[in-house]
Design a protein around this nucleic acid. Structure first.
Lengths: 179, 179
DNA sequence: TATAACATGTAACAAGTTACATGATTTC
DNA sequence: GAAATCATGTAACTTGTTACATGTTATA
């Protein structure tokens, strides 16, 4: 909730924008930070606007669909700083759905577990690769740090997975024939 | 969704249990794996029961409130293996809310950012400490691995935070007087 | 000429949480 | 005698997603 408003406000600081534009920016540039959907972005912008945190002005080019251009105002800046402080100061609790599968790997033959975890690793490598390739045309220090964080966490996942797979393969009841 | 059913089914394999008991177990033993709420657990158990994946029998001790004891059946075991395979094979996409704050740290004086991130670090250290202290009376290999994963991810967070704070402190416009 | 991109919005749906209701028993 | 624990459940609410409706303009 809060972090979505923070994101929208933050993006409006660098320039006034309309909803479509903001969502488009998020989708093409920040797919590793959030997957906020269009309808959600529009709804939040309207809510921020109703709360007087952002101002609206309707623009229109020719007979193209009119666009609502949002600009952050003083109240919005105050809210931004408040949300930013809260966000920076708190370590959000992250739950990993994948941990639940791990909990029950005793119920499978080691070979099967290794087979599935190898798939997980491939999946992960693809994601890691994608983050690597992200163009950082935005040279903002902060955005860079956020990307570094994301990359580091993916690498931790990858290193954990590799260790775990090795460990399982080293177990006495692992049948090497299946490879 | 899926991972919640997987968890409940998995816990029912080791023993038949009633909802209160299962939720109690989760709350006291798995606070780092999930924070599934009571109402959610009950609802999922009822859904699994309606889907014929688990059987119910009502027990009652004296005049205490009756309890619905759930047992996993063959259909449930099949579902369990299917959900387990899917869970193990997929790397779930994790978004870190904290990344959004990081993105905008350019908008604050470095000293403020450092101050907030130090708070974040304390918060994180507390969480890391708590995981460290978790009693692993359950000696299941899988549960252990899941906990190791959680621990490793927290350590990656911590290491990232330390590096980032150091980096910020090393920036030319960081004023050491404030410490 | 079809379809993708531009631009906004709404209604239905999905999933989970909060808060409460009920009522017995054990503990402070 | 009050409060916590045991045991289940429901209704209202929150948040976000999916899918669609609308209509123009650029592109294939």
């Amino acid at each position: 909730m809060d972090h979505r408003s923070l994101l929208l406000l933050g993006l409006l600081i660098s320039q006034s924008q309309h909803g479509y534009q903001i969502h488009d920016f998020i989708e093409t540039n920040l797919p590793f930070i959030t997957d906020m959907k269009k309808a959600t972005a529009y709804a939040h912008l309207e809510k921020l606007s109703k709360g007087k945190y952002i101002d609206v002005s309707v623009e229109q080019e020719g007979s193209r669909p009119p666009r609502k251009v949002y600009s952050i105002n003083n109240q919005g800046m105050e809210l931004f700083y408040q949300l930013l402080a809260e966000n920076l100061a708190a370590a959000d609790t992250v739950f990993y759905e994948g941990d639940i599968g791990l909990m029950f790997l005793d119920h499978l033959p080691v070979e099967d577990t290794v087979h599935y975890l190898n798939k997980r690793r491939k999946d992960l490598e693809k994601k890691h690769h994608a983050v690597q390739l992200t163009p950082l045309h935005d040279t903002s220090k902060g955005v860079n740090i956020a990307f570094q964080h994301k990359k580091k966490m993916l690498e931790a996942e990858l290193s954990f997975l590799n260790e775990t797979i090795q460990q399982l393969k080293a177990s006495p009841d692992y049948n090497k024939e299946v490879e």
